[in-house]
Amino acid sequence: MALVRNMKKYWVFYVMMLPGAAFLILNNYIPMLGVLIAFKSVNYEIGMLKSPWVGLDNFQYLFKTTDAWIITRNTILYNAAFIVLNLVVPVAFAIFLNEMRNKFFAKVHQTILFLPYFLSMVVVSYLVYGFLHDTHGFVNTTVMKSFGLEPVQWYFQKEVWPYLLPLVNTWKNVGYYAVIYLAAVIGFDDEYYEAATIDGASKWQQIKSITIPLLVPMMIIMTLLQIGRIFYADFGLFFQVPRESGPLFPVTNVIDTYVYRTFIALGDVGLSSAAGLYQSICGFILVFVSNWVVRRIDKDKALF
């Protein structure tokens, strides 16, 4: 009954959401039944539904290795770093770009900031290789030489990569995230600032007590969204950029690269499906917890 009343009152909303919801059912919810593959040994000739069940066998390989802990740790730590960097740096960039007096320059910088986002990871990996190659890379031939240092085999130096990968990731994505925050900053009502100016607040005070608090909801959403995918690593970044260099594995091996190598060797969709399910469930739990925490603090800012 309540539903009918609700439908009557908000029918316009339901109509508005219809195309989107229909799409989600088609594109996302129906294929989700495919998670069954994770528990099966697939034989296409007899069909997916009739293929034999294998229980949790497909999950075993994820924990078979002594590296299970390392790849999980790498995945989470890198992603945690990315979440923080993708929050702090773009927000700062957005605020500064907004405050820049010369609007023309601000626009030019915005555009240029965005350029790295266009490059595919394969091309990025060539660029990094161009910089770090042991005999004709820019770093060894120019930078190290001018400091009078010996050339270094960068692709064997695992100490460097935990800093290098976040650097590459931020360089590539900062423009993208900055645009989101910039759009939000532009949307803020000028009246807040005018009132603050009349009260004699300095620009820095205004940023601290008006801009940032107003950005918090957007920051929370972005963070929650990224936490949901914290068990998924950016495959291109971890596979292409370190060039599968073995000595770097302790700091570059993540769940996605691990699964990919297994898939290349075995070609078994059950195994990759199992990995995906494992990543999703872990992310799901984390999001639920974080959302719960947010809700405890401020009900309106929670995602759901």
Binding site: Y61, L62, G246, T262
Partner: peptide
């Protein structure tokens, strides 16, 4: 399968 999945990763490393 589970062992092979782990081994191919060890191989790529070394």
């Amino acid at each position: 399968k589970a062992e092979v999945g782990a081994i191919v990763n060890v191989d790529s490393q070394y």
